[in-house]
Design a protein around this nucleic acid. Structure first.
Lengths: 339, 339
DNA sequence: CTACATTGGGTTATCGTTAACCCAAGAATG
DNA sequence: CATTCTTGGGTTAACGATAACCCAATGTAG
């Protein structure tokens, strides 16, 4: 559906000009700070603009060839701390630079991704910051190329469709956790996740985790659902399922910390001692983990860094210093105590 | 800063028309599904548009008087589950209706709020969904009135500056928790929060909480910081501070669940039995709370409902059925067990 | 055979702003 | 006094799409 808004009586440059006794062009110059306009005229115009509540019509402005200050940011979902942290860092960097952020969510869905990119492009943004980790439609890539819009891709450094890539190596992250489990001498390990079909990065982590374990002769039992939330609830359900079938499992790696917390609760319910009988590991050192009592292993990296560097990347695309690819290093982190 | 993007060789209606052997107008009609165009021409035009990767230039389209399908949604921050849940519900409702969401964050800052509203208005959206709970600048209100843009306000039902208001009564929520504490017979109660100066709704809850307690002769000790995060970390710091000065406190109400979890951790550290010696209460039944072991009281309401109804409100503004004000009822909820 | 409707388009003006250029009046310069 | 520069603006033509209207060619009824 579309909504007709034409009845608005908008204030235009001419209206302001009439009130100030000058032409629309002069008003335009004053408001943009260009041209040679004496202080007196300037003040008069400013006052008139204020009185009328004038707002530049970006539609007309950009159409006439002005430079855009709008940056579109696309994340899978704002409900995940990881992405909202990145978002926050991007905003923190772009706002002082005078750039305005427009946010969209893709839900890891390539069709929605396409729609959102198309929506963003339709307002001719200065640049786009897109999350990677999904199988982007060929049409989407084509659109971006045709419109020649600068793109910074975050979260995925493998895919190199765009100008700049910033994120961790998800394979490294998966391998890292496998090495951690191996160093603890675990022989029977589980993986719990949800919605892996769409999230390529999570799948990369899981695969690298499995490969590194297998290389040392350790089996991985996957317990994955496509229809459960990536939250504590989902972690609970899947952990129950996993423990019902494989009660002798020694360690579980979860898709994220929220699901790991769900697993933690199930172990508690069943009287399984963590970490003595069962090691629990998440991903993304989220702040809920901060207050956890029982020992939880997780993988951390600076999301702030990803956001900040993405925003700097946007700027670099124009200032010339070409940032190319920034790899963010994941590290293993222990949270909680073992009392 | 602004970024010059003019070098882009954009695809226009004429370009598509040339390829398809028709005029720009015909292409426009085909893409919008108006006019009487035979199936054959229609297909040819569609194919040409696809091949060239054409995207409607909304700038030109809206300027020429077309109806907008863009809805701006402004939330305080995407880092809070409450707002990201609302956001998610809004998206779920608007997308099938063919409306596109543009999101912005205000960080509870009236100046940023103004900038964001101004940015939104500059692309002439179909409607705006704005969060309440901040002291909006007079200029912001003026802008919205001048541009005659339909506004749905969420999260705050007290303020009636706009067409539709959807949210809980924060005073009721505060009172509710006070009644709960009173029913438990508590005589010495604390409140822990952060960044209350900007968040009017949180302040309303805290005040109503205090008033209802005082009416029954119960004192409230406030421990609030303006410079700490509204997360577990902040909850820990403030709980320590509060317990250091008032070790005999019997119950603490936190600004939100995340801070309450921080408080939970501190009580555990200090060997304080919850809920026997100390009652802990948060706000917003967030999913981290789902897996908590110790008993935690919180206040819940349907965030989904707020989002869904806000989106429906946007539609109702045009279909005529006038939604006016929807009050969402908060309820007290117990989480965790007491073992 | 004429009058009139339908089909399948095309033409023109316009939205509000900006880039690029123009121009008149006074000041400065030789 | 004639020339050139500076100041303080204004004029014109885009930008790309759409609304509103127009107009041939064909069909169809009387």
């Amino acid at each position: 559906m579309t909504i007709n808004n034409k009845t608005n009586q908008k204030v235009t440059l001419s209206d302001v000009g009439k009130l100030a006794g000058v032409s629309a062009m002069t008003v335009s110059k004053v408001l943009r700070g260009t041209g040679r306009i004496p202080e007196e005229t300037r003040k008069r115009v400013q006052a008139a603009a204020n009185e009328l509540g004038y707002v530049t019509n970006q539609l007309a402005s950009l159409l006439a060839g002005a430079s855009s200050n709008m940056v579109g940011v696309l994340i899978p979902t704002a409900r995940d701390v990881v992405y909202s942290d990145i978002l926050s860092a991007i905003n923190a960097e772009l706002r002082p630079a005078g750039l305005r952020t427009f946010i969209g969510e893709s839900y890891f869905d390539p069709a929605v991704d396409y729609e959102q990119v198309s929506s963003f492009l339709s307002i001719r943004p200065a640049a786009l910051i897109l999350h990677g980790g999904i199988e982007r439609k060929a049409e989407t890539i084509k659109l971006l190329k045709k419109q020649a819009c600068p793109v910074v891709q975050i979260w995925d450094v493998e895919n190199t469709d765009f100008n700049i890539n910033i994120g961790p190596s998800h394979a490294d992250a998966g391998k890292l956790m496998a090495e951690h489990f191996l160093s603890l001498g675990l022989k029977k390990v589980g993986y719990v996740g949800a919605e892996l079909e769409l999230d390529i990065c999570a799948a990369q982590r899981a695969n690298a985790f499995e490969d590194a374990l297998k290389a040392q002769g350790v089996d991985l039992i996957r317990c994955v659902a496509e229809d459960l939330p990536r939250q504590a609830e989902g972690g609970e359900v899947l952990t129950r399922r996993l423990l019902d079938h494989y009660p002798d499992i020694q360690g579980i790696h979860y898709l994220n910390d929220a699901m790991a917390l769900g697993g933690m609760r199930v172990s508690y319910e069943r009287g399984i001692s963590v970490p003595d009988s069962l090691k629990i590991a998440g991903f993304n050192a989220t702040s809920n983990v901060h207050s956890v009592r029982t020992k939880l292993t997780t993988i951390n990296m600076s999301y702030l860094d990803i956001g900040t560097k993405a925003a700097k990347g946007v700027v670099s695309l124009y200032t010339g210093e070409s940032v190319d690819r920034v790899q963010i290093e994941p590290i293993v982190l222990e949270r909680g105590n073992t009392t």
